[in-house]
Computed example of a mutant assay.
Amino acid sequence: MIKIKKEKQVMNKKYFAAAALACALMSCGTGKNSVAVVDFTGEWNIVEVNGEKVSAENAPFLGFDKDGHRLYGNAGCNRLMGSFELDTLNAGKVKFGQVAATRMMCPDMTLEQNVLEALNKVAGYETVGEDVALNDAEGKPVILLQKREVAEVSVNDLNGAWEIVSVKGNPVREVEKQPQLVFNVAEKRVHGNASCNTINGSFTQEEGQAASLRFSQMISTMMACPNMDVESSILKALDEVRSFEIKADGTVSLLGADGAEVLSLKKLAETEAEA
């Protein structure tokens, strides 16, 4: 009898040990998924692709517009855009859809190709310390994301004259005169030229949104020039602007509703500004 009792005690210990392990793996009794729910809102740097660390001058990143389910960012050369859907019933599941990129050519497209291929494989996510890994259907990490620090900005930083150096990623070339914008923050006015004609207008901001920016009442003269395509693209881009960001090198990106850059500006000296 003593031997049987001891055997039962050993079996009971093994059973409870196995049950405890199963509970730990499945978050038994907690009513919660064992995968932490991630708030993707904002922008994230892509720091690894397929296990290889990313080192690039134009570091790729992803931005998530949670309310609109919109995905935007940069793949290393070109701007990317698309959609995403989080599985609210199963934490750790995410799906990217209709991811597309602009078609500008860069000296080395390897990183961009790897980023886009990896995005097409994403089926889930998990936290890795303070970072987030995007995994494929088999749970293998294909992209590692690191939250971007949001720098404090002020519309006062825009005051003065700026050269328009690119429109939606395309450098401005072969124009009648170099296009520029001059901000008068005190009066909330802007003037300049769109490569041919003089432009004038105003700008507004959303209350409590320091980086918001929207142009309004923009008018231009009606002079004809040999190449009006650049001017047309600039005027269209100005109408799409909804916010701005100041980069580490001092240049300014004017962004559309999806967070993608529509105009890039470079600061001008006072002697270079239009009267």
Rank of each mutant, 00 (worst) to 15 (best):
K140L: 11
Q209F: 05
A269N: 15
I46R: 07
V262D: 08
M222I: 10
M1S: 09
A118W: 04
E52A: 11
P179M: 02
T88G: 11
D39I: 04
A59P: 00
R173M: 07
Q217W: 02
L25E: 12
T88L: 13
K32N: 12
V99N: 05
L119C: 05
M222K: 15
N12E: 10
C77N: 02
D108T: 02
S232L: 01
L134S: 07
A133Y: 08
V185L: 09
M11A: 15
D258G: 06
E187L: 14
C77D: 03
V150I: 14
S243C: 09
E57N: 10
K247D: 10
V38T: 11
V99R: 04
E270Y: 02
N184E: 12
T271I: 06
N159H: 15
K3Y: 03
K14D: 08
V49C: 04
Y125N: 09
R79S: 14
S216Q: 15
L71I: 10
F84L: 07
F183K: 09
K168S: 14
A194I: 06
M228P: 11
D108E: 11
S195W: 00
T127V: 10
E52G: 00
E48N: 10
I246T: 12
A273P: 06
E240C: 01
N156E: 15
V230A: 04
G97N: 14
L235S: 05
D67I: 08
K121Q: 15
D39H: 05
T102H: 06
F40R: 03
E174W: 00
G73T: 08
G82F: 12
A194Q: 10
L255H: 02
V122T: 05
G192T: 06
K3P: 01
T271V: 12
M81D: 08
K6N: 02
I219W: 05
A133F: 02
L80W: 01
K53Y: 03
L235D: 02
A24P: 00
V10C: 00
G192C: 05
C225G: 09
M26N: 11
N184C: 02
C106W: 06
L263K: 04
Q178R: 13
P60W: 05
M218Y: 02
T41V: 01
V182Y: 04
A151K: 15
Q113A: 07
Q180T: 06
V99I: 14
P107I: 03
N197P: 09
G73I: 05
K53C: 00
Q178E: 10
A248Q: 13
P179H: 01
F215Y: 13
Q217H: 13
L21G: 01
V167S: 01
E126W: 00
Y15F: 13
E261G: 07
N156T: 12
V142P: 02
L213Q: 06
G29N: 11
E187H: 07
G42L: 06
M26A: 14
K93H: 12
A137V: 11
A248S: 15
T221G: 09
S216Y: 09
L21V: 14
E270A: 15
M228V: 06
D136L: 11
V252T: 11
N78A: 06
G63Q: 11
V252R: 10
G129P: 05
T110N: 07
M223Q: 14
